[in-house]
Design a protein around this nucleic acid. Structure first.
Lengths: 170, 170
DNA sequence: CACTATTATTTGCTTTTGCAACTACTTTCG
DNA sequence: CGAAAGTAGTTGCAAAAGCAAATAATAGTG
């Protein structure tokens, strides 16, 4: 089938919708997370990625990529979480330049509560909006974009097999 | 067809992909916009929405919603653009509390150049990634989400018929 | 009409973010 | 080995963003 060309305007619109949707969700979640857990959406992003990683830990640089922060942004974010007692740093024994961010016991406990709550909130927003098929499609299309923008690696998909770069865990 | 339930994990992943995609695009565009036009992505968002509105103007509050900023964030953003001579404020004659942000001649000239460039950049990223059909699907799914999160109004779709709340234009 | 409630935007102040420079380590290569 | 180049993370500083309170104008009510 001859594909009708997509016009510039439509592409710009799609990008605009993507930005608006992300910002809208961020604000929505932030309100609740702030109220119920005193967490910003950004902190939560950092925590959830740790929580979903093997050993509840991730290299700083990897975490920065996953949480959409620059290295310096992540350093401060982890500083804050550390002050709150939710995260600790662990030097990488293999490479002493490197550091892991690790969920503390307290952080783990918090996330064990917060993640189901958050998932329920996400459900609330998406469940009645999309069919299961649409949701799958959206996920696939977004993953394609994400992988294209970064390097097919990073993030959420949680293809666990990497991440454990630093065998000498505590 | 009985819809297989979507698992919590998958929903969380989808949301994560959305955040990552948006952040990735923002960084990508920002780099080029900064280099070629000395504009942040945020400023550009404000400008492009003005440029695509009838009369190149929009109420502050409407613009804030479209650009994913809080009212105060938008005030400062417009302050900066005004200092750069790209935007001006116009008091709404109907309602003297209200203000319009308007593209100046200079701002219009800038955007007449910048938008095609930006559109080309967006094309570069999306053209070979998605089929026309996929792109349409993505756009539809995102629009549904955006409309659900806000009030089916706002933004890009540019259903021009509103916006002209303030008849007494200059 | 005076009086209270609402709405639109701005301002004061604090937090978050980013860039660029810096430190500390590792790797490469002569 | 030892200097040069590269990598991981942190810090100083400045820009941007948000919240809450202030301002200004409009709407509603008795």
């Amino acid at each position: 089938m001859a594909q009708l060309p997509v016009k510039d305007d439509e592409r710009l619109t799609t990008v605009g919708l993507l930005f608006e949707s992300a910002a809208g969700l961020r604000r929505l979640f932030e309100t609740r997370l702030e109220a119920e857990r005193s967490l910003s959406n950004q902190s939560f992003e950092v925590l959830i990625r740790l929580a979903r990683s093997p050993g509840s830990e991730l290299r700083m640089s990897e975490l920065a990529a996953q949480a959409s922060l620059t290295p310096s942004g992540l350093t401060r974010s982890v500083d804050r979480l550390q002050e709150q007692g939710l995260v600790a740093r662990r030097v990488c024994p293999d490479d002493r330049r490197g550091a892991f961010a690790v969920l503390t016991t307290e952080g783990r406990a918090l996330m064990d509560q917060a993640i189901p709550d958050h998932a329920a909130h996400v459900d609330e927003v998406l469940r009645d909006l999309y069919t299961a098929e649409e949701e799958q499609t959206l996920s696939d299309l977004l993953r394609k974009l994400r992988d294209h923008l970064f390097g097919a690696d990073a993030a959420w998909g949680l293809t666990a097999e990497d991440a454990d770069t630093c065998p000498g865990a505590e």
